[in-house]
């Protein structure tokens, strides 16, 4: 998993009604670690920025979809 994806392991008990989900993942986007955006960060070209949803690679978070047909990012 890339560095933004974190995992945790829910408790699985013998009386769980449904099949257990052993690993759950969540995303910690880079903007959590940048309190104040520094100046003159490198930028994506515009056409790519539109596709990726941000102008600055430092703030880009792929947030991949977990369903089968999830778009590759």
């Amino acid at each position: 998993m890339n560095n933004q994806m974190r995992e945790y392991y829910p408790f699985v008990g013998p009386f769980d009604p449904c099949p257990p989900i052993r690993v759950k993942t969540y995303v910690v986007p880079p903007n959590q670690f940048i309190p104040y955006q520094p100046m003159n960060l490198p930028q994506f070209p515009l056409h790519e920025a539109l596709r990726r949803g941000t102008l600055w690679p430092a703030l880009f978070s792929p947030y991949p979809s977990r369903c089968k047909g999830g778009y590759p990012q």
Binding site: Y36, Q37, M39, N40, L46, L50, L55
Partner: peptide, 23 residues
């Protein structure tokens, strides 16, 4: 669309960085 998106991003950036000349 590309130009508009760039302008939106830069507008929001400049709101918090008013003295960033390059931006």
């Amino acid at each position: 669309q590309q130009l508009d998106f760039g302008l939106v991003e830069l507008t929001l950036y400049l709101d918090t960085h008013p003295n960033d000349l390059q931006a």
